[in-house]
Each structure stands twice: as structure tokens, then as C-alpha cells.
């Protein structure tokens, strides 16, 4: 009898052990799955690792005085197509600085597709180029423009 009881106790112990191990396994598994989905949960310092400047504006595409604030681009037909296709790799500052004809913009787009990984713009290309030549048309500045934006000041020596 005592031998049988002892055996039963052993079995119970083994079952308990298996149960505990299985629970631990489940718990670990669960944690791993959770960790996969939300790794930052276990890292209190994650916040300092990820510093991303998300515009605080509720409307990140806010327009004031005809200017798209986030990019500085003029608000006109095609604006968001330009923003979405042309400000991913480079800043809008590069667009605003440059004034070109339809032909030269198309050449530039082709160059960006060949060397800068720009995607096929499809029908959007016409929208984009129309926007650019309408809002940033070439200016004839002659062979040498007069000095501009002079900030006058008294020179003391």
C-alpha cells in the first residue's frame, strides 16, 4: 500500500511539475508574442530612442495665406499630388528654388526616375508639371540682375 501511495504522490508531483512547466511555457510564449507585437512595453527608455517630429498641428496640411504651411508650397490645383510625390526624398525647398519649363521639368523627372528611385508618376506627372510651371514659372533675369534686398545700415568705424 505504502509503495502504491508513494507512487501516486510521485505521479502527482510529476503532473504538478508538468503543469507548472506548461504554465511557464504558456506565459513565456504569451510574453514573446506580446513582445513581438509591442516591443516597447518592456523598454522604459524607448521614448528617448524614438525622436520623431510629428507636426503638432491637428491638420498637418493646414494652408494659410495661400501657402501650404508644412512645405511652403503655393496652394493650387495639384498641391497634394506634388507634396505626396515630390517631398519624400528631398525637401520642398529644392522645388521652390527651381524654376523650369514643362520640357525641363519632364527631363528632370526622367533623371530622378533613372538615378534617384523616383517611381512612375502615371497621370500624376501632368498634374505635377502643370502645378510647377504655373506656380513657379521661369523668370527672365537678363545677363546680370540689379543688386536686390539690400539691407542699408550706418557704417561706424
Amino acid at each position: 500500500m505504502s509503495k502504491e501511495e508513494g507512487y501516486k504522490k510521485l505521479i502527482k508531483k510529476v503532473i504538478l511539475l508538468i503543469f507548472v512547466l506548461f504554465s511557464l511555457f504558456l506565459l513565456t510564449g504569451g510574453l514573446i508574442v506580446y513582445y513581438t507585437i509591442n516591443p516597447s512595453f518592456f523598454n522604459n527608455n524607448t521614448e528617448s530612442n524614438i525622436t520623431i517630429n510629428i507636426p503638432i498641428d491637428e491638420d498637418e496640411d493646414r494652408i494659410e495665406n495661400g501657402i501650404h504651411l508644412r512645405t511652403g508650397l503655393i496652394d493650387d490645383e495639384g498641391l497634394m499630388t506634388v507634396v505626396n510625390n515630390c517631398t519624400n526624398c528631398h525637401s520642398s525647398k529644392l522645388i521652390i528654388q527651381n524654376r523650369m519649363t514643362t520640357e525641363r521639368w519632364n527631363t528632370t523627372i526622367k533623371w530622378m526616375q533613372e538615378t534617384q528611385n523616383l517611381w512612375d508618376l502615371g497621370k500624376n506627372q501632368e498634374v505635377i508639371v502643370n502645378y510647377l510651371v504655373t506656380n513657379y514659372p521661369p523668370k527672365d533675369i537678363g545677363r546680370r540682375a540689379p543688386l536686390q534686398n539690400i539691407n542699408w545700415y550706418e557704417l561706424k568705424e
Binding site: 520623431i52 508644412r70 517631398t87 519624400n88 525637401s91
Partner: peptide, 9 residues
């Protein structure tokens, strides 16, 4: 604000 935080579709 920053042009590179653009969430495009």
C-alpha cells in the same frame, strides 16, 4: 514643420 514627416498614401 517637416516635409519629411509626410504620411503619403
Amino acid at each position: 514643420s517637416h516635409s519629411y514627416c509626410n504620411i503619403s498614401n
